[in-house]
Amino acid sequence: MEWFEKSDFWELTYPFMFPETRIEKAEEDALSLLKLAGFEKGDVLDLCCGPGRFAIPLARMGFNVTGVDITGFLLDIAKYRASLENVEIEWIKEDMRRFRRSGSYDLIFNMFTSFGYFKDHSDNMQVLENVNESLRQGGKFVMETMGKETLASIFHQVTDEETDEGLLLIQRHRIEDGWNRIENDWLLIDDESVLGRWKFSHWIYSAAEIRNMLLDAGFSNVEVYGDPEGAPYNSESGRLITLSTSG
């Protein structure tokens, strides 16, 4: 089983990955990205939707939304949150390498560095090809990740975070394969014991690398930005956002 398929990883790290402030910020980011992409209505896919950070506000805005994720724990939270907001969303538990619906969507989101998890480069390319195939002609694909340029400027071998409840997440990082991959060793502890430890790695991409991959996957145009409002991308950008058009 791959690291991202392990439910305990998402259950135990959830307070760090999806604090309420991050969930609340998603609606503001969604509005900015919709303006950047030029969409006010249509069929939307949130690929690797997690707990529905983007899917739920998009549905509330009137979009027809499908949320896909491989993690049942996160989908259960998404379904519960959607029920509280009384919005209808199609939730699907599936591997992003296998999910493809030809010509079904106007807009597809892949947010929060949810790309590059697969060891085999061809698997990551398969994801991009699936996305391109699932878009209608002229549809848009919005992807957000941590760019290699930004990571290089802020990289620390050890970082840590602590919640108000006293959970401490210690993260050790190591760059591998000539700055192509990052190896991670996460240790979660409280005052009394070790709650979990996970070792995993994923690809890291520069703006040029991800742009070339998107073009190779069949997209006709790729724009690169440094935030949801459309600021230019550079090494000081908090995020690497690509806006790609299906050819």
Rank of each mutant, 00 (worst) to 15 (best):
M1S: 15
F4M: 04
F4L: 09
S7C: 12
F9K: 09
E11D: 09
M17L: 14
P19G: 06
E20W: 11
T21W: 15
I23G: 00
I23V: 15
E24A: 13
K25Y: 15
S32N: 14
K35F: 11
A37E: 05
A37K: 03
F39G: 00
D43E: 13
V44Q: 01
L45M: 07
G50M: 01
P51Q: 03
G52V: 09
R53W: 05
L58W: 04
A59K: 03
A59N: 03
R60W: 08
R60Q: 14
M61S: 12
F63A: 04
N64I: 12
N64T: 15
G67Y: 03
G67Q: 08
T71A: 12
T71K: 07
L74W: 04
L75K: 02
A78D: 05
Y80E: 15
Y80F: 09
L84G: 12
E85C: 13
I89F: 01
I89S: 00
E94D: 10
F99Y: 06
R100M: 14
R101P: 01
Y105I: 04
Y105L: 04
L107Q: 00
I108L: 07
F109L: 09
N110I: 00
N110H: 06
T113C: 05
G116D: 04
Y117C: 03
D120R: 13
H121I: 10
D123E: 14
M125Q: 10
Q126I: 08
L128P: 01
N130F: 02
N130E: 11
E133M: 08
E133Y: 13
S134E: 05
L135D: 03
G138T: 02
G139E: 06
M143Y: 02
E144K: 01
E144Y: 05
T145N: 09
T145K: 01
G147A: 07
L151Y: 13
A152L: 11
F155L: 11
F155T: 12
H156E: 15
Q157E: 15
V158L: 09
E161S: 13
E162V: 12
E162L: 08
T163S: 12
D164H: 11
L168C: 07
L169R: 01
Q171S: 14
R172P: 01
R172S: 10
R172T: 14
H173A: 12
R174S: 14
I175P: 02
E176T: 10
W179M: 13
W179E: 14
N180A: 07
N184Q: 06
D185C: 07
D185F: 09
W186G: 00
W186A: 04
L187A: 06
L187G: 00
D190I: 06
D191T: 08
D191K: 15
E192H: 11
R197Y: 04
K199C: 08
F200R: 08
F200Y: 14
S201V: 02
S201H: 14
W203I: 07
W203A: 02
I204V: 11
Y205R: 02
A207V: 04
E209H: 13
R211C: 05
R211V: 04
N212C: 09
M213W: 11
L214H: 01
F219S: 01
F219N: 05
S220Y: 10
N221V: 09
E223G: 08
E223F: 05
V224G: 07
V224L: 04
Y225T: 03
G226F: 07
D227W: 05
D227M: 10
E229Q: 15
G230D: 07
G230V: 04
Y233V: 06
N234V: 07
N234D: 15
S235L: 05
S237A: 11
R239W: 07
R239V: 02
S244N: 11
